[in-house]
Computed example of a mutant assay.
Amino acid sequence: MTFLYPRVGLAVLLSLLISACSDQTSTMATPSHLTAAKAKAIQLCAGCHGPQGIGTAPFNPNLACQKKVYMVKQLNDYRNGSRTSHLPMANIAKMLSEDEVDSISEWYSITGCP
């Protein structure tokens, strides 16, 4: 019987650790603006840039883990017409609000990063 008590104590300790870890991850949920950004990115961007930001063809750039400030600048350049190299991107960027440009860029900047 003396062996039973250390095992019970270990089982209780392990269950507490597991529940503490799962509680911690639930408090680190994606903020709502990034949830909306992900949905918008999947709707408008995933066809070419993939649902996780990995380009679907060799000539489509990866957006996963890209710097947010870079993506904001590129999207704004498409929106204001100073970048005209790809008409589909210009048309898509013009459909985005300033807040959407910011939040989608933020979402891609943290997606797929190690």
Rank of each mutant, 00 (worst) to 15 (best):
V101K: 09
A90S: 13
T84E: 04
K68Y: 03
K67W: 12
A39V: 10
G50W: 06
P88C: 06
Q66K: 09
V69I: 07
K73E: 12
R83K: 14
Q74W: 03
N91Y: 05
F59I: 02
E98D: 15
H86P: 00
P58T: 01
W107T: 03
R79Q: 14
G81S: 07
Y108T: 01
P31W: 08
K67I: 10
S97F: 12
V72E: 13
N80M: 04
R79E: 02
T111H: 07
I54M: 05
I42T: 07
G53V: 02
T111K: 09
S97P: 04
A93K: 08
Q74E: 10
I42H: 09
W107H: 08
P61Y: 01
G53R: 04
K94S: 13
I54T: 07
I54F: 10
G55I: 04
S85K: 04
P51M: 11
H49F: 14
S105A: 15
I104L: 11
H86C: 08
S85D: 15
S109W: 10
A57W: 05
A37V: 00
P58W: 07
A39L: 10
A46E: 10
V101L: 11
I104P: 08
P58Q: 03
A90F: 00
M71R: 01
N60R: 05
N91Q: 14
A37W: 08
P31K: 12
Q52E: 13
Q43L: 11
T56Y: 03
F59C: 01
N62P: 02
D77Q: 09
N80L: 05
N76S: 06
A36T: 10
S103R: 07
L96R: 10
P88S: 01
A57T: 05
L44H: 11
Q74V: 05
Y70C: 06
A57R: 09
W107S: 06
M89Y: 10
V69N: 13
Q66D: 01
Q66T: 00
A39N: 13
R83Q: 11
C48P: 03
K67D: 13
P58G: 06
Y78I: 05
A64G: 02
A57S: 11
V69P: 00
I104A: 07
C45W: 09
T56K: 09
K67N: 05
P58A: 08
S85W: 08
A41C: 05
E100L: 08
E100G: 09
A41Q: 03
Q52N: 13
